[in-house]
């Protein structure tokens, strides 16, 4: 499998004829790479991600995703079926693919362990905390072995220690299977740790301000302590801040 490639050409999105969420945007994402979208709140990141995932149609321009991918989508909200327990929620994509019940259960359990929710398998979503629900949603997005993974602030609700551990898990997994990933996050350190490239967006309507190539190879915890990591983080912060200041003027 060669991996999924994404090509945006002049993509814009305008809501209700006047709310411009995404300005004309060209963006190419190479197969098997992790791209982080970083930008101020309300700038149009989720809209962009939803257009890549095909659940939102651009007002103008084209989104090409090749070859037709198996998408794992973790929305900004957990979106669990309230009458299904966590295990059956996580196994849903496999079930919809018509896989046998025991495969669904086994794979779902495996992903739950990965996001540290193994003990919560039998609980209903209502019995989970916000962060637990999001982790279940991440597990669901991974369960059917996607080749395109779209993550919208998956770990925003977690404490930093847990978040770091899950970032490490995700980093290992997506690199092992060369999944193409688009990640929306508000955390600069998460973006730098996970991504091969960080795309910094302007306030609404989203434009690309800057693209940062992240040169690290293996993503191990110790990476966060390196000077290079700190330097990248600082310059991305400055860029993001610059975009926001310019907007205020």
């Amino acid at each position: 499998m060669s991996g999924v490639e994404i090509e945006l050409r002049g993509v814009t999105k305008t809501f209700d004829r006047s709310v411009e969420a995404v300005a004309p945007m060209d963006l190419d994402l190479r197969p098997g790479r992790v791209t982080a979208l970083l930008g101020p709140t309300g700038c149009g990141k989720s809209t962009l991600l939803r257009m890549i995932g095909g659940v939102e149609t651009p007002t103008a321009g084209s989104v090409a995703v090749r070859p037709k991918p198996r998408i794992g989508f973790c929305f900004q909200e957990p979106r669990l079926l309230p009458w299904r327990n966590v295990l059956r929620n996580v196994g849903l994509p496999l079930e919809l693919d018509g896989r046998p019940r025991d495969v669904c259960r086994r794979e779902a359990q495996r992903r739950l362990e990965m996001v540290r929710l193994g003990d919560a398998a039998e609980l209903l979503p209502a019995a989970l905390s916000g962060g637990m629900r999001m982790r279940a949603a991440v597990a669901r997005s991974l369960v059917a072995d996607p080749d395109l993974l779209l993550l919208d602030e998956p770990f925003g609700a977690l404490d930093e220690v847990t978040r770091f551990r899950l970032d490490e898990e995700v980093a290992t997994l997506v690199r092992e299977q060369s999944i193409t990933v688009v990640l929306v996050t508000h955390s600069i350190s998460e973006a730098v740790f996970l991504a091969d490239e960080v795309v910094v967006l302007s306030p609404r309507p989203a434009r690309i301000i800057e693209r940062y190539e992240i040169p690290f190879g293996e993503r191990v915890a110790s990476l966060r302590g390196t000077e290079e990591f700190a330097r990248l983080q600082a310059s991305i912060y400055a860029c993001l801040r610059g975009g926001m200041m310019e907007d205020e003027r």
Partner: peptide, 22 residues
Amino acid sequence: DAGLEEIFRIHRVGRIRTWWKL
């Protein structure tokens, strides 16, 4: 819920199955 419907749409589930499961 429109968000839940989206989950089914992404997995290209037909209308009848979506009716049954969701």
